[in-house]
Design a protein around this nucleic acid. Structure first.
Lengths: 236, 236
DNA sequence: CGTCAGCTTGATTACTTTCAATTGTTGTGG
DNA sequence: CCACAACAATTGAAAGTAATCAAGCTGACG
């Protein structure tokens, strides 16, 4: 099994210390970082399953994760992504409910685990951390509601364009500044846009035809961002 | 203008004191309840508009409210409902963003307003209130994600059935224990299910045909709950 | 070099929307 | 109280969109 060669996780390098956990006092940081579990997840490996009980918080040190929910006839729907510096699983943990979605590594990832107890200890005495959680939830909720309205009202073509734009804003470009920095199968893109693999393929082919995007296997290059936005019919 | 004859709002009778604000100390309750604005909203009246700046928290004493977002070509999408004892507008207030949705009274309603400053003062020193907010957001997020997957994967018939079920669980029945306790136009139901008015009418007619529901003008009676659930293809 | 999974394409079918026309309801002013 | 206007609900027919089904194709890998 090949591993990405990255530094071994340390909270000092972790983007989360600068963001989510930035308001922690030194003792609090100690509590969080000592004896945290840190794990390597291979591409495709599941971090937690929808319906399972939540007993920890996941801290994404490096990698890319998709959150999916099972829908009608077992069809998967991608509801959100996480990447370096994101926190995962805080919602189920705080509302004391089972995970509502399944988290899967989209590429080899390093993810640390913070136990429920430690996290709750720290958050109880730290209103600023609560506030961070509120902000995260607000952001997720806003995203979910926007996604909802997109799926409800847009055509397949518009949803595919929208999905590509979301992938770009979420994961950015490769070094060439043109290729979206994530590889997904056609069926994963379909799960994201809420359509079928076949329709996804046809739509991507159309966009390729018009030189709006360029397809290199699983790499997708955005040639004409302006036109892609127009295709997505964004109204915000 | 006719008004529903209800008691004038008092925090003592308000469901929110027993729920959202239940952990407040007496002095805190004083701060919140003194000089709060309380207002009557006529059916159809807008409480706040998408895009406007948030400067207060709304406390729904009595009534029913729909939250809508504008989508493609100005088509409305209903994203959520609020009713007696619900809090509105906390998200935009806490994340210091403009309202992301428009709130409209679906029937005559009494809604109190708590100023931003007062609310922030109280929440800063009250972790339990923060936690309440986190729980509300979690619940909304869960609902939005479920709604997303429903709209993305279900047929119009399933979505209409689902919408009726949601209306029932949200607003309950009238005294007869069979009629859904809310009146909506066909186009509002369409905005909820993410379809057109015509399709909504046809689908409701079908359900009526099969004696699963009964249509009395704007009143909808659920005759066969079991079958309606089956129609909605609920998988949870 | 064969196999398997993912990708692609075409044809057909099913479902929804759209458009147009009609009927029904409600509120208002005379 | 009636007539009218405005809006909501309904119905039918036609057009469009996307899903489904079936069949090749391709590339990675043992």
């Amino acid at each position: 099994m090949k591993r990405k060669s990255i530094d071994i996780p340390s909270c000092d390098n972790c983007k989360n210390s600068k963001d989510f956990f930035c308001n922690l006092s030194e003792p609090e940081k100690q509590i969080i970082s000592e004896k945290k579990g840190d794990n390597f997840y291979k591409k495709g490996q599941v971090i937690f399953y929808e319906g399972n009980h939540a007993n920890g918080l996941f801290c994404l040190y490096d990698g890319k994760v998709k959150l999916t929910k099972l829908g009608k006839d077992g069809k998967e729907q991608i509801i959100r992504f996480s990447k370096d510096g994101d926190i995962l699983g805080y919602r189920s943990l705080l509302s004391n409910e089972p995970y509502h979605a399944t988290a899967t590594a989209m590429e080899d990832s390093y993810i640390c685990t913070i136990s429920k107890e430690k996290f709750l200890t720290v958050i109880e005495d730290n209103p600023k951390l609560s506030f961070k959680v509120i902000q995260l939830l607000s952001k997720d909720l806003k995203g979910a509601e926007q996604h909802l309205i997109d799926v409800a009202q847009k055509s397949v073509k518009e949803r595919i364009a929208e999905s590509l734009l979301l992938l770009q804003t979420t994961f950015g470009y490769l070094a060439d500044n043109r290729t979206i920095n994530i590889q997904m199968s056609r069926s994963e893109i379909a799960d994201m846009a809420g359509t079928t693999t076949e329709s996804t393929i046809r739509t991507l082919a159309q966009l390729n035809e018009k030189n709006i995007i360029e397809l290199n296997g699983k790499n997708i290059v955005i040639n004409d961002m302006k036109e892609l936005i127009k295709c997505s019919n964004s109204y915000d």
